[in-house]
Amino acid sequence: MALRVIVGIKWVPNTQAVRFDPKTGTLIREGVPSIVNPHDLDAVELALQLKERYGAKVTAISMAPPSAVKGLEHVIGMGVDDAILISDRVFAGSDTLATSYVIAQTLKRIGDFNLALFGQETIDSSTAHIPAQVAGWLELPYIYYVDRIEDLDLEQNVVTVRRILEDRLEWYKLKMPAILGVAMKSQKPRPVSIYNKLRVRMENPIKVWSNKELGLDPRCLGLKGSPTLVTKVTWTPEVPRKKQVIEGPPGEAVKKLVEKLCGEGVLPFEC
């Protein structure tokens, strides 16, 4: 049986481009382009290496609104074979528990996968819950911070992975199917290629599954299925930048600058 790898993708606002509204404490998402969560691209890259090494078929999945098709097109452009967009209004407002439930049920429906790879966390919420919770729902083995697949034995159905921690490396053997969290920045995600991009346009490799296909209990989905309460959000208020240009020869200008900074009390020493 050929190796089947699933890779999870999140479509996130580009947090580097997001600004805070200091009055309401919410994100200003208006006009901010979304991107594939950069850490997921590490997982995609690792999956594509398995495709090269073992001829794996790689399927990307994403639970997101329809606009996330752009993200799935991107990873197919990198070389992923096909993709499923899990999209339905009843999924809206899901916390990580409800989300991981939907993703776990999607994996169950796909059925014959050997490995499901996820980015370790997402740049917009950084919970790192999803891969662990998916493994929990499916009662499958799970290792996180994986940076390398050392060996894959399809006969024994065992995968050997390397985990990278701050001070050491660890090796694990897992029975497949297994869930892996791929260490952040552990890979160099490849660029898209023109043929793979053409495939997106000519072969229609993206399917959309709504809850019609999955048939999940609405009580477990969306806001209803989400026990998480966000009770308080704090943030560091942005200090408006003052741009001032100090004219004059460098020596004098520096003097004036130091005086100004002293006046503002930002220098760590007495002036």
């Binding site: 991107h74 290629s193 053409l198």
Partner: peptide
């Protein structure tokens, strides 16, 4: 308009 006229558009390439 180009795509609806039948052109294939690929970006990021």
């Amino acid at each position: 308009k180009a795509v609806s006229a039948g052109a294939i558009f690929v970006d990021e390439v």
